[in-house]
Nucleic acid binder design. Structure first.
Lengths: 340, 340
DNA sequence: ATTGGCAGTCAGGCTAATCGAGTGCCAATT
DNA sequence: AATTGGCACTCGATTAGCCTGACTGCCAAT
């Protein structure tokens, strides 16, 4: 059985190892912490922890380092989520407060998060699910090429190129534009999509095909929730912690440049939408990130959009501080985007 | 004086060093290339090149590597811009051809360029200078918070949050929206900005302040040319070439995450807008990129937008291939965006 | 101008020796 | 049963010394 003191030993092993990157031995533990017992006793505890596979000795005769499982126990049972320092809170407010639009907010958020944690930060764009159609614009770019622009009442803007099979003149476009806006403005996205399928009936037969093509694009845009985009910042931090990755950070950098990977990662997180979810080491193996941990939390925006943000770094990271930062930023962002 | 053969020697030194990352010695030169002279002769030539500071010996008794100046001469006089392989051309067409909007085009472009060159790729968003106003939308987000959306005939979309000092009702917004579009649609951005300063006269005195605030935001948006944004891809390639950076790539990664730095870098490039500009090593010192080379070329889009794209990597890179790739992609992109 | 020969230099790699942090185990103690 | 001090042992990391091999620079000969 793992005693209380053993767990305390695990805690200090995690803390010291995170701080120093050196395997920690029984002697240094009794030196740096007041357990009131001798090194030999600590050794016995460590033997227990090793049996439980919470720590491991990299070499026959050297200190111990936490295993993935050890970090897991630390995160679940031992990490104290101390609130951020005043300076940090201050930084969040002043840095995010001056944003001018959604892109700006998210771009500031991701940079902020990376600075607070000294890790790679990720912010996912929120979904549009509950938004309504505000305005639809159609812009001719060429004889048979248009751009459709889709504005929601949440202030989100979607644009899309569309090549059509027939010529379009300005008069026709004007009518289409008017009709689209008259029929769709104010509708929820799902309803708008449905209505779009019948928009063709108002036009002459020879226009049907073109109208159908445009309508199809707009339908795509209502479905397009931008859930497939995210921002990243702080890749340089990976280099700083390069030694924590067995050899090369190349596969890690490659994996995180592939947005699809990260989106899947965010997508598979389960449990509490708020609150900070943590996946550790091999738990991320399938994403090619078997040596990294990911901390993430959900946030919401006024349009009903939900998404995640978080940080990614070596399993050897300061979980307490980083979890607190992720939580604080997610909360602040929710507050900022909910103001309406 | 630097003879013709000496220059040839410089060329093979650059080529061999780029290929092998080993300082190249006189013996290996005569082995691998048919100069028809002996190693001792090559040594004499190398002594000349060293005197001109085109090459340097890292250690007293070892082969030579090119200096920044050596690369410069290579790029200016010796690099043969062989056209891309068929497969590469094919890749450009198929990969960029399926883009759906500007964001998509540029995001594909930057990834493509990074794959073609195995370096970090950069693509700057084009300016709007010659565009005209297509449509202006104003979306209420809260009692005193609006979003302005600005659509140009080039299909560009600009959005901006604005907090106003007085309440706005939907009726007023409707009028403002109508008036803005009636007055501004079709105008060049500069003219629109001018007209915006007088838009207030149509409204009741108590509305003046709010209208002025909105107008000011729109004026900003006309000036906002998005010239301050760029995309990056292929950071993982920096790690691959880490050994080419004296020690750590950390400062490099830091510098390139700071978009402002890169934009300045692009901004200072002079000379031919088309054609490939190259800055080498210490020429980039002021940007914290003293150990990297940057290849870039301008491209244009139908709206009259101009911008640059390029790649960044260690001075030890395959200039011939990369310059060809940058040129080809810039040309293709110009063609793609010019289609209107 | 070119060449072959030769002495000199020095980085990198290899081996051996040493050091020391840390462990596991055991008998003694509380 | 838990804790402790002692002790032999292990093994990674560091250091020093040696050797090798790839080059160069120079010089005299062609």
């Amino acid at each position: 059985m793992v005693s209380d003191r053993s767990l305390e030993v695990l805690r200090v092993i995690v803390q010291d190892y995170v701080a120093s990157r050196e395997p920690v031995g029984s002697k240094s533990i009794v030196e740096r912490h007041s357990f009131g017992v001798s090194a030999a006793t600590i050794r016995n505890d460590m033997a227990l922890l090793e049996e439980e596979e919470l720590i491991v000795a990299p070499h026959t005769s050297s200190g111990r380092v936490p295993t993935d499982k050890g970090y897991r126990v630390f995160v679940d049972q031992l990490a104290d989520l101390r609130p951020l320092s005043g300076a940090q809170r201050q930084a969040i407010e002043t840095f995010l407060g001056q944003s001018v639009d959604l892109d700006d907010v998210l771009s500031r958020t991701v940079r902020l998060l990376s600075q607070l944690t000294h890790q790679v930060a990720l912010v996912q764009y929120p979904t549009l699910t509950r938004s309504r159609v505000r305005h639809i614009e159609i812009v001719p770019l060429g004889p048979r090429r248009l751009m459709t622009v889709f504005i929601t009442d949440g202030g989100r803007v979607e644009q899309r190129l569309v090549d059509v099979s027939g010529d379009v003149d300005e008069e026709f476009l004007g009518e289409l534009r008017t009709r689209l806006n008259a029929n769709l403005a104010g509708l929820a996205l799902l309803d708008a999509a449905e209505k779009l399928t019948t928009i063709g009936v108002h036009f002459a037969p020879e226009r049907q095909e073109v109208v159908a093509q445009i309508a199809a694009t707009l339908v795509e845009q209502t479905a397009e929730n931008r859930h497939d985009r995210l921002l990243m910042a702080g890749a340089a931090n990976l280099v700083r912690t390069e030694e924590d990755f067995n050899g090369s950070i190349f596969p890690v950098l490659e994996a995180i440049e592939e947005q699809v990977t990260l989106l899947k990662l965010f997508g598979e997180v389960e449990g509490d939408h708020h609150g900070v979810a943590v996946t550790i080491g091999r738990e991320n193996e399938v994403f090619g990130l078997g040596q990294t941990s990911v901390l993430s939390s959900g946030y919401t925006s006024s349009g009903g959009g939900i998404a995640r943000l978080g940080v990614l770094g070596p399993t050897r990271m300061d979980y307490s501080n980083n979890m607190a930062a992720v939580r604080a930023v997610a909360r602040y962002l929710t507050r900022l985007l909910g103001e309406d």
